[in-house]
């Protein structure tokens, strides 16, 4: 069975909207009485309700139209290695430092995109890290953990 794009989008939007309304319920009332008619919860409820209505509209009213930005499941799966790479990068970069972290991120990413030309890819990756170090750390003098923390 083919699931339409609007149904998936609408369902995800609806889930998010309901989660948002649930979170709005969790907001504590202000500690003392104020002139504020809506309070901290009122506006989020209005926005949450508006999102629920729109989600239902997307689910049941929207006509299925070709969205050229849509991607297939196989294309979507191709994002997984990149996401894993980024996850590893974020976890390791505080220890490896930006220079090595960004070098590895660039190198592995280029390798995932296209195999071959390992030396060329290595050189480009080193140059990218080097350029970031020169521009951000040396020229712009922005404090960055460029090197491994021991």
């Amino acid at each position: 069975m083919k699931v339409s794009q609007n149904k998936v989008t609408g369902l995800l939007c609806l889930l998010f909207s309901l989660f948002f309304i649930y979170q709005a319920f969790q907001i504590e009332p202000p500690p003392s009485a104020t002139m504020d008619f809506l309070g901290p919860r009122g506006f989020p409820f209005i926005i949450g309700s508006q999102m629920v209505l729109c989600s239902l509209g997307i689910l049941f009213l929207s006509k299925e139209e070709g969205n050229e930005d849509n991607v297939g499941l196989s294309e979507l799966k191709s994002l997984i290695p990149y996401l894993l790479l980024i996850l590893v990068f974020i976890l390791l970069v505080p220890y490896l430092g930006m220079f090595i972290g960004l070098f590895l991120l660039t190198f592995v990413m280029v390798r995932i995109m296209e195999k071959g030309k390992i030396i060329q890819n290595l050189i480009v990756s080193v140059c990218v890290s080097f350029a970031i170090w020169i521009v951000f750390d040396i020229l712009l003098n922005l404090s960055m953990p460029m090197w491994p923390s021991l």
Partner: peptide
């Protein structure tokens, strides 16, 4: 889509 546009506003 206006509905998706309106949802984007809410989001």
């Amino acid at each position: 889509s206006v509905l998706k546009g309106l949802f984007s506003i809410g989001l």
